[in-house]
Amino acid sequence: MPKPETWLKVTPHGLFCVPGDFYLDPIRTVPKAIVTHGHADHARPGHEAVIATPETIEIAKMRMGINTWKNTEPLKYGRNFKFNGVDISLEPAGHVIGSAQVVLTYKGSRVVVSGDYKRRQDPTCDQFKVIQCDAFITEATFALPVFRHPDDHTEIKKLLASLERNPDRTHLIGAYALGKAQRVIALLRKAGYQSPIFLHGAINKVCDLYKKLGVPLGELKSVSHANKKDLIGQIVIAPPSATRDRWSRRFTNPIICFASGWMQIRQRTRQRGVELPLIISDHADWDELTQTVVEVEAPDIWVTHGREEALIHYAETKGIRARALSMIGYEEQNE
């Protein structure tokens, strides 16, 4: 059985499968790629041929144009695909809709490239599946023991309570356009919030796609058609950058909220001028990460982007070999 590091290598273009002759989430344009999910730092334009889940392909087309990837091979969760002697399958990563862990098996040696992931339930996507393997490649966005994401229902309750306390103000929530925004909406609906939710244009587009893919989000409205008065006491969701932009001046005395795992840290809240921090993350927290590196039972853990040092240290204390892949080009601020 070949050792994982002999057939899977880090290159300037990204992670490369040598016998398969394809890249995983390449950061530059390549002939063949497997893409784990639709976030812009993982799904880049211009590749010749791409294998990804049908949802990820839809997202890429919507964001970058229908012809962004010349040939696409939609692969549903759990299905197998053989390519240049490498068995490929995609399993849910629980990060955003269509997000996948890539399971690669070559001559009996199995590597799981998990992309970005979380373990907890999310009404907008399939839950993470543990796959035992010989090498597990993990992210480390929140790999510090200070990051312990609370239950998302308590965070939504905080939002609803603030809404009740401040009927005269608009709650402007900064949330990443793909995944986070839809999850916040779905959680609000689950908590019984029935009013229309107002959206920034960038988020509207993604929500339409989610609905098309079968995720119910209730009544959604575009902010650009609403007038100031109608937004009082309502929820508006916008990409985080827009909440600090001129764009947000259209609201009277808004309460700036931010849905992100970073909101665990007080100074991050202050740096961003956030009034209502909502600790809702699409990445695994410390407990989920450490649970995962143990449960996959892999003798080798490779850590990609984030706070790899701490996760490697943890793995080593558990007798698991771990090393940093020092991958660059993946943005952590998207969370």
């Binding site: 510090l144 023991p145 200070v146 840290i265 007080r266 100074q267 706070r307 040092e309 701490a310």
Partner: peptide
């Protein structure tokens, strides 16, 4: 806590009381 995890956390958070 593990000393190393504490040091890394403190360095990241930048505030001892919060860490």
């Amino acid at each position: 806590t593990d000393q190393k995890l504490f040091e890394l956390s403190y360095e990241y958070v930048g505030d001892l009381a919060e860490t």
